[in-house]
Amino acid sequence: MQNFWKNRRVLITGANGFLAGWLAKDLVGRGANLTALIYKKNPVSVFETEKINRKSDVIYADILDLRSMKRIMKEHRIQTVFHLGAQAICQVAIKDPVGTLDANIRGTMNVLEAVRAVNANIHVVVASSDKAYGIHKKLPYLETYALHGEFPYEVSKSCADLISQMYYATYNIPICVIRSGNLYGGGDSHFSRIYPKTIYRLSRGLRPQLRDNSIRDYVYVEDAARAYRMVAEKMKHGLVGEVFNLGWNRPVSVLRVLRLIAKTMKKPHLKPETSNRSSSHIPKQYLSAAKIKKMVGWKAEISLEEGTKRTVAWYIDFLKTHKFRLHD
Protein backbone atom coordinates (compact mmCIF):
# COMPACT_ATOMS: atom_id res chain seq x y z
CA MET A 1 0.00 0.00 0.00
CA GLN A 2 2.65 2.48 -1.09
CA ASN A 3 0.08 5.12 -2.13
CA PHE A 4 -1.66 4.98 1.27
CA TRP A 5 1.24 6.80 2.91
CA LYS A 6 1.83 9.38 0.18
CA ASN A 7 1.46 12.78 1.93
CA ARG A 8 -0.36 11.14 4.87
CA ARG A 9 0.13 13.25 7.97
CA VAL A 10 1.74 10.98 10.57
CA LEU A 11 2.90 11.62 14.12
CA ILE A 12 5.40 9.31 15.81
CA THR A 13 6.02 9.94 19.51
CA GLY A 14 9.52 9.09 20.61
CA ALA A 15 10.48 9.21 16.93
CA ASN A 16 14.21 8.87 17.50
CA GLY A 17 13.84 5.77 19.64
CA PHE A 18 14.90 2.27 18.60
CA LEU A 19 11.83 0.86 16.83
CA ALA A 20 10.51 4.33 16.04
CA GLY A 21 13.61 5.20 14.02
CA TRP A 22 13.14 2.22 11.70
CA LEU A 23 9.41 2.91 11.41
CA ALA A 24 10.11 6.55 10.55
CA LYS A 25 12.58 5.48 7.87
CA ASP A 26 10.00 3.14 6.32
CA LEU A 27 7.17 5.69 6.34
CA VAL A 28 9.25 8.59 5.00
CA GLY A 29 10.46 6.28 2.24
CA ARG A 30 6.82 5.73 1.32
CA GLY A 31 6.08 9.43 1.11
CA ALA A 32 4.53 10.10 4.52
CA ASN A 33 4.47 13.65 5.85
CA LEU A 34 6.10 12.85 9.18
CA THR A 35 5.87 14.90 12.36
CA ALA A 36 8.52 13.52 14.69
CA LEU A 37 8.00 14.15 18.40
CA ILE A 38 11.31 13.98 20.26
CA TYR A 39 12.21 14.49 23.90
CA LYS A 40 15.99 14.69 23.47
CA LYS A 41 18.64 13.82 20.88
CA ASN A 42 19.69 10.19 20.37
CA PRO A 43 22.79 9.84 18.17
CA VAL A 44 22.49 6.03 18.05
CA SER A 45 19.01 6.01 16.54
CA VAL A 46 18.54 5.25 12.85
CA PHE A 47 16.37 8.38 12.84
CA GLU A 48 19.55 10.43 13.28
CA THR A 49 22.27 8.20 11.82
CA GLU A 50 20.39 7.98 8.51
CA LYS A 51 19.28 11.63 8.58
CA ILE A 52 15.56 10.88 8.72
CA ASN A 53 15.33 14.01 10.88
CA ARG A 54 16.11 16.08 7.77
CA LYS A 55 13.08 14.60 6.02
CA SER A 56 10.69 15.18 8.92
CA ASP A 57 9.13 18.01 10.86
CA VAL A 58 10.96 17.54 14.16
CA ILE A 59 9.30 18.85 17.32
CA TYR A 60 10.98 18.75 20.72
CA ALA A 61 8.22 18.23 23.27
CA ASP A 62 7.17 16.06 26.21
CA ILE A 63 4.21 13.68 26.03
CA LEU A 64 3.53 14.66 29.65
CA ASP A 65 2.55 18.12 28.38
CA LEU A 66 -1.09 17.70 27.37
CA ARG A 67 -1.39 21.22 26.00
CA SER A 68 1.54 20.61 23.63
CA MET A 69 0.07 17.32 22.49
CA LYS A 70 -3.24 18.98 21.62
CA ARG A 71 -1.48 21.78 19.77
CA ILE A 72 0.62 19.35 17.71
CA MET A 73 -2.40 17.25 16.75
CA LYS A 74 -4.33 20.35 15.69
CA GLU A 75 -1.65 22.39 13.94
CA HIS A 76 -0.25 19.45 11.96
CA ARG A 77 -3.70 18.00 11.15
CA ILE A 78 -2.48 14.54 12.11
CA GLN A 79 -4.21 11.53 10.51
CA THR A 80 -2.25 8.62 12.03
CA VAL A 81 -0.42 8.43 15.37
CA PHE A 82 2.16 5.81 16.31
CA HIS A 83 2.58 6.18 20.06
CA LEU A 84 6.03 4.75 20.78
CA GLY A 85 7.32 7.31 23.26
CA ALA A 86 7.99 5.65 26.61
CA GLN A 87 10.48 4.81 29.33
CA ALA A 88 11.39 1.36 28.04
CA ILE A 89 14.07 -0.06 30.34
CA CYS A 90 13.07 -2.44 33.13
CA GLN A 91 16.07 -1.68 35.35
CA VAL A 92 15.47 2.07 35.07
CA ALA A 93 11.89 1.40 36.16
CA ILE A 94 13.14 -0.42 39.26
CA LYS A 95 15.25 2.61 40.21
CA ASP A 96 12.64 5.21 39.25
CA PRO A 97 9.14 3.72 39.43
CA VAL A 98 7.40 7.09 39.71
CA GLY A 99 9.08 8.50 36.61
CA THR A 100 8.36 5.33 34.64
CA LEU A 101 4.72 5.14 35.68
CA ASP A 102 4.27 8.81 34.89
CA ALA A 103 5.86 8.60 31.42
CA ASN A 104 4.19 5.38 30.36
CA ILE A 105 0.74 5.81 31.89
CA ARG A 106 0.09 9.56 31.93
CA GLY A 107 2.07 9.94 28.69
CA THR A 108 -0.23 7.46 26.94
CA MET A 109 -3.29 9.08 28.46
CA ASN A 110 -2.18 12.50 27.21
CA VAL A 111 -1.64 11.30 23.65
CA LEU A 112 -5.07 9.68 23.54
CA GLU A 113 -6.80 12.55 25.30
CA ALA A 114 -5.29 14.96 22.76
CA VAL A 115 -6.72 12.80 19.97
CA ARG A 116 -10.13 12.74 21.66
CA ALA A 117 -10.13 16.51 22.11
CA VAL A 118 -8.85 17.47 18.65
CA ASN A 119 -10.14 14.80 16.27
CA ALA A 120 -11.51 11.47 17.47
CA ASN A 121 -11.14 10.05 13.94
CA ILE A 122 -7.33 10.02 14.08
CA HIS A 123 -6.01 6.47 13.79
CA VAL A 124 -3.75 5.45 16.68
CA VAL A 125 -1.37 2.51 17.00
CA VAL A 126 -0.10 2.10 20.56
CA ALA A 127 3.09 0.23 21.44
CA SER A 128 2.53 -2.12 24.34
CA SER A 129 4.73 -5.07 25.33
CA ASP A 130 4.72 -8.74 26.22
CA LYS A 131 5.64 -7.49 29.70
CA ALA A 132 2.09 -6.16 30.07
CA TYR A 133 0.88 -9.74 30.58
CA GLY A 134 2.98 -10.35 33.67
CA ILE A 135 3.55 -14.03 34.42
CA HIS A 136 1.29 -16.75 32.99
CA LYS A 137 1.96 -20.46 33.29
CA LYS A 138 0.50 -21.43 29.91
CA LEU A 139 2.63 -20.59 26.88
CA PRO A 140 2.60 -19.06 24.34
CA TYR A 141 0.71 -15.99 25.52
CA LEU A 142 -2.53 -15.18 23.69
CA GLU A 143 -4.15 -11.77 23.31
CA THR A 144 -7.03 -12.97 25.51
CA TYR A 145 -4.77 -13.45 28.54
CA ALA A 146 -5.26 -11.05 31.46
CA LEU A 147 -2.85 -8.18 31.97
CA HIS A 148 -1.33 -8.26 35.44
CA GLY A 149 2.19 -6.92 35.52
CA GLU A 150 3.91 -7.10 38.90
CA PHE A 151 7.08 -5.01 38.58
CA PRO A 152 7.16 -1.25 37.78
CA TYR A 153 7.79 -1.45 34.03
CA GLU A 154 5.33 -4.33 33.57
CA VAL A 155 2.64 -2.49 35.53
CA SER A 156 3.18 0.68 33.51
CA LYS A 157 2.62 -1.26 30.27
CA SER A 158 -0.42 -3.13 31.65
CA CYS A 159 -2.03 0.17 32.60
CA ALA A 160 -1.17 1.97 29.34
CA ASP A 161 -2.53 -0.99 27.38
CA LEU A 162 -5.83 -0.96 29.29
CA ILE A 163 -6.14 2.82 29.01
CA SER A 164 -5.77 2.51 25.23
CA GLN A 165 -8.52 -0.08 25.11
CA MET A 166 -10.67 2.18 27.30
CA TYR A 167 -10.38 5.07 24.84
CA TYR A 168 -11.57 2.80 22.05
CA ALA A 169 -14.44 1.28 24.04
CA THR A 170 -15.65 4.55 25.56
CA TYR A 171 -14.94 7.15 22.88
CA ASN A 172 -14.82 4.99 19.75
CA ILE A 173 -11.37 6.31 18.83
CA PRO A 174 -9.85 3.99 16.19
CA ILE A 175 -7.04 2.38 18.16
CA CYS A 176 -4.99 -0.80 17.82
CA VAL A 177 -2.47 -2.04 20.38
CA ILE A 178 0.65 -4.07 19.58
CA ARG A 179 2.32 -6.19 22.24
CA SER A 180 5.77 -7.21 21.03
CA GLY A 181 8.38 -9.58 22.29
CA ASN A 182 12.04 -8.59 22.65
CA LEU A 183 13.17 -6.47 19.70
CA TYR A 184 16.75 -6.40 18.48
CA GLY A 185 18.69 -4.77 15.66
CA GLY A 186 20.85 -1.76 14.91
CA GLY A 187 20.02 1.64 16.33
CA ASP A 188 19.27 0.61 19.91
CA SER A 189 20.91 3.17 22.18
CA HIS A 190 20.23 1.21 25.37
CA PHE A 191 23.54 -0.56 25.84
CA SER A 192 22.16 -2.35 28.89
CA ARG A 193 20.25 -4.60 26.47
CA ILE A 194 21.66 -7.90 25.39
CA TYR A 195 22.56 -7.18 21.75
CA PRO A 196 24.29 -3.78 21.91
CA LYS A 197 26.01 -4.58 25.20
CA THR A 198 27.30 -7.97 24.08
CA ILE A 199 28.51 -6.68 20.71
CA TYR A 200 30.27 -3.79 22.43
CA ARG A 201 32.00 -6.07 24.93
CA LEU A 202 33.07 -8.64 22.36
CA SER A 203 34.39 -5.90 20.07
CA ARG A 204 36.68 -4.85 22.95
CA GLY A 205 37.81 -8.39 23.70
CA LEU A 206 35.63 -8.64 26.82
CA ARG A 207 33.52 -11.63 27.80
CA PRO A 208 29.73 -11.35 27.43
CA GLN A 209 27.75 -10.97 30.65
CA LEU A 210 24.94 -13.34 31.59
CA ARG A 211 22.59 -11.63 34.04
CA ASP A 212 19.92 -14.30 33.81
CA ASN A 213 19.11 -17.13 31.43
CA SER A 214 15.49 -16.24 30.79
CA ILE A 215 13.59 -17.58 27.79
CA ARG A 216 12.35 -14.97 25.34
CA ASP A 217 11.01 -14.37 21.86
CA TYR A 218 13.30 -12.19 19.70
CA VAL A 219 11.91 -10.18 16.78
CA TYR A 220 14.14 -8.29 14.36
CA VAL A 221 13.37 -4.57 14.48
CA GLU A 222 12.60 -4.15 10.76
CA ASP A 223 10.08 -7.00 10.98
CA ALA A 224 8.46 -5.15 13.89
CA ALA A 225 8.38 -1.82 12.03
CA ARG A 226 6.69 -3.56 9.10
CA ALA A 227 4.05 -4.95 11.48
CA TYR A 228 3.22 -1.50 12.83
CA ARG A 229 2.88 -0.13 9.31
CA MET A 230 0.68 -3.04 8.16
CA VAL A 231 -1.65 -2.70 11.16
CA ALA A 232 -2.05 1.03 10.46
CA GLU A 233 -2.85 0.29 6.82
CA LYS A 234 -5.52 -2.23 7.79
CA MET A 235 -7.16 0.33 10.08
CA LYS A 236 -8.32 2.23 7.00
CA HIS A 237 -10.50 -0.80 6.20
CA GLY A 238 -12.13 -0.94 9.63
CA LEU A 239 -9.63 -2.96 11.66
CA VAL A 240 -9.90 -1.07 14.96
CA GLY A 241 -10.13 -1.91 18.64
CA GLU A 242 -7.83 -4.89 18.21
CA VAL A 243 -4.82 -6.06 20.19
CA PHE A 244 -2.03 -7.98 18.46
CA ASN A 245 0.90 -9.99 19.73
CA LEU A 246 4.12 -9.57 17.81
CA GLY A 247 6.44 -12.54 18.11
CA TRP A 248 8.49 -15.13 16.28
CA ASN A 249 7.13 -17.96 18.43
CA ARG A 250 10.60 -19.51 18.56
CA PRO A 251 11.75 -18.78 22.12
CA VAL A 252 15.43 -19.01 22.95
CA SER A 253 17.51 -18.55 26.08
CA VAL A 254 19.75 -15.57 26.75
CA LEU A 255 22.73 -17.94 26.79
CA ARG A 256 21.96 -19.12 23.27
CA VAL A 257 21.76 -15.52 22.08
CA LEU A 258 25.11 -14.69 23.69
CA ARG A 259 26.71 -17.69 22.01
CA LEU A 260 25.18 -16.79 18.64
CA ILE A 261 26.51 -13.23 18.84
CA ALA A 262 29.98 -14.52 19.79
CA LYS A 263 29.91 -17.01 16.92
CA THR A 264 28.82 -14.34 14.46
CA MET A 265 31.67 -12.09 15.61
CA LYS A 266 34.10 -15.03 15.36
CA LYS A 267 34.85 -14.86 19.08
CA PRO A 268 33.31 -18.09 20.47
CA HIS A 269 36.31 -18.48 22.80
CA LEU A 270 35.04 -15.56 24.89
CA LYS A 271 32.67 -17.44 27.16
CA PRO A 272 29.89 -15.67 29.09
CA GLU A 273 30.52 -14.62 32.66
CA THR A 274 27.76 -14.41 35.24
CA SER A 275 26.98 -10.92 36.48
CA ASN A 276 24.54 -9.71 39.13
CA ARG A 277 21.29 -11.58 38.70
CA SER A 278 18.07 -9.61 38.45
CA SER A 279 15.24 -10.90 40.65
CA SER A 280 12.56 -8.72 39.06
CA HIS A 281 12.23 -10.48 35.72
CA ILE A 282 9.85 -12.92 34.11
CA PRO A 283 11.77 -16.21 33.64
CA LYS A 284 9.94 -17.54 30.57
CA GLN A 285 7.76 -15.66 28.15
CA TYR A 286 6.86 -15.81 24.49
CA LEU A 287 3.89 -14.91 22.32
CA SER A 288 1.55 -16.45 19.79
CA ALA A 289 1.45 -14.30 16.64
CA ALA A 290 -1.36 -16.33 15.02
CA LYS A 291 -3.88 -13.47 15.27
CA ILE A 292 -1.78 -10.85 13.49
CA LYS A 293 -0.90 -13.35 10.79
CA LYS A 294 -4.57 -14.15 10.20
CA MET A 295 -6.02 -10.64 10.42
CA VAL A 296 -3.17 -8.51 9.09
CA GLY A 297 -1.07 -10.92 7.05
CA TRP A 298 2.13 -10.26 9.00
CA LYS A 299 4.69 -12.82 10.03
CA ALA A 300 8.33 -12.52 11.04
CA GLU A 301 10.68 -13.01 8.10
CA ILE A 302 14.18 -12.39 9.47
CA SER A 303 15.60 -15.41 11.30
CA LEU A 304 17.55 -14.99 14.52
CA GLU A 305 20.74 -15.96 12.70
CA GLU A 306 20.24 -13.47 9.86
CA GLY A 307 19.06 -10.75 12.22
CA THR A 308 22.11 -11.26 14.41
CA LYS A 309 24.42 -10.90 11.38
CA ARG A 310 22.72 -7.63 10.42
CA THR A 311 22.80 -6.33 13.99
CA VAL A 312 26.47 -7.16 14.50
CA ALA A 313 27.38 -5.48 11.19
CA TRP A 314 25.41 -2.35 12.13
CA TYR A 315 27.08 -1.92 15.52
CA ILE A 316 30.59 -2.71 14.31
CA ASP A 317 30.20 0.00 11.69
CA PHE A 318 28.71 2.40 14.25
CA LEU A 319 31.44 1.78 16.82
CA LYS A 320 34.14 2.51 14.23
CA THR A 321 32.92 6.08 13.85
CA HIS A 322 31.54 6.82 17.31
CA LYS A 323 33.94 6.79 20.23
CA PHE A 324 32.51 6.20 23.66
CA ARG A 325 33.10 4.00 26.67
CA LEU A 326 30.45 1.73 28.16
CA HIS A 327 30.45 1.62 31.94
CA ASP A 328 29.00 -1.55 33.49
Rank of each mutant, 00 (worst) to 15 (best):
Asn7Lys: 15
Ile12Gln: 00
Gly14Ile: 09
Ala15Trp: 05
Phe18Ile: 07
Ala20Glu: 06
Gly21Thr: 09
Gly21Phe: 06
Leu23His: 05
Ala24Asn: 01
Lys25Ala: 04
Lys25Arg: 12
Val28Ser: 08
Arg30Asp: 13
Gly31Val: 03
Ala32Glu: 06
Ala32Ile: 08
Thr35Ala: 01
Ile38Ala: 05
Lys41Asn: 15
Pro43Leu: 11
Ser45Ile: 03
Ser45Arg: 02
Val46Asn: 01
Glu48Tyr: 09
Thr49Pro: 03
Glu50Val: 07
Lys51Cys: 09
Asn53Asp: 13
Asn53Ile: 05
Arg54Ser: 12
Ser56Leu: 09
Ser56Thr: 13
Val58Asn: 10
Val58Trp: 08
Ile59His: 02
Ile59Gly: 01
Asp62Lys: 02
Ile63Phe: 01
Leu66His: 03
Arg67Phe: 11
Ser68His: 10
His76Leu: 00
His76Trp: 01
Arg77Phe: 02
Thr80Lys: 07
Phe82Gly: 02
Leu84Ser: 01
Ala86Asp: 10
Ala88Gln: 08
Ile89Met: 10
Cys90Lys: 15
Gln91His: 12
Lys95Trp: 04
Lys95Tyr: 09
Pro97Asp: 10
Pro97Cys: 11
Gly99Ala: 03
Asp102Val: 11
Asp102Pro: 04
Ala103Lys: 07
Leu112Ser: 04
Arg116Met: 13
Val118Trp: 02
Ala120Phe: 11
Ala120Glu: 15
His123Glu: 11
His123Lys: 15
Ala127Trp: 08
Ile135Gly: 00
His136Ile: 01
His136Pro: 00
Lys138Ala: 06
Lys138Met: 05
Leu139Tyr: 02
Tyr141His: 10
Leu142Glu: 06
Glu143Leu: 09
Ala146Val: 00
Ala146Arg: 08
His148Thr: 09
Glu150Tyr: 08
Phe151Tyr: 14
Glu154Gln: 07
Cys159Ile: 15
Ser164Trp: 13
Gln165Tyr: 12
Met166Gln: 14
Met166Gly: 13
Thr170Ala: 13
Thr170Lys: 14
Tyr171Thr: 12
Asn172Gln: 15
Pro174Ile: 08
Ile175Asn: 02
Gly181Pro: 03
Asn182Cys: 13
Tyr184Phe: 13
Gly185Ala: 04
Gly185Phe: 00
Ser189His: 09
Ser189Arg: 04
Ser189Asp: 10
His190Met: 11
Phe191Met: 14
Ser192Arg: 14
Lys197Cys: 14
Ile199Cys: 05
Arg201Phe: 07
Arg201Cys: 07
Arg201Pro: 03
Gly205Gln: 03
Gln209Thr: 12
Asn213Glu: 10
Ala224Gln: 07
Ala225Val: 04
Ala227Pro: 00
Met230Pro: 01
Val231Leu: 10
Met235Glu: 05
Lys236Trp: 11
Leu239Ile: 15
Val243Leu: 04
Phe244Ile: 05
Asn245Cys: 10
Leu246Arg: 03
Gly247Leu: 11
Trp248Asn: 14
Trp248Ser: 15
Val254Ala: 02
Leu258His: 02
Lys266Leu: 13
Lys267Tyr: 09
Pro268Ala: 09
Pro268Phe: 07
His269Pro: 00
His269Ser: 10
His269Ala: 10
His269Asn: 10
Leu270Arg: 02
Lys271Asn: 08
Arg277Asn: 13
Ser278Gly: 14
Ser280Met: 14
His281Ile: 15
Ile282Asn: 11
Ala290Arg: 11
Lys294Val: 00
Leu304Asn: 06
Thr308Leu: 02
Lys309His: 09
Lys309Met: 09
Thr311Val: 13
Trp314Glu: 13
Trp314Phe: 15
Leu319His: 04
Leu319Val: 05
Arg325Val: 12
Asp328Gln: 14
Asp328Trp: 11
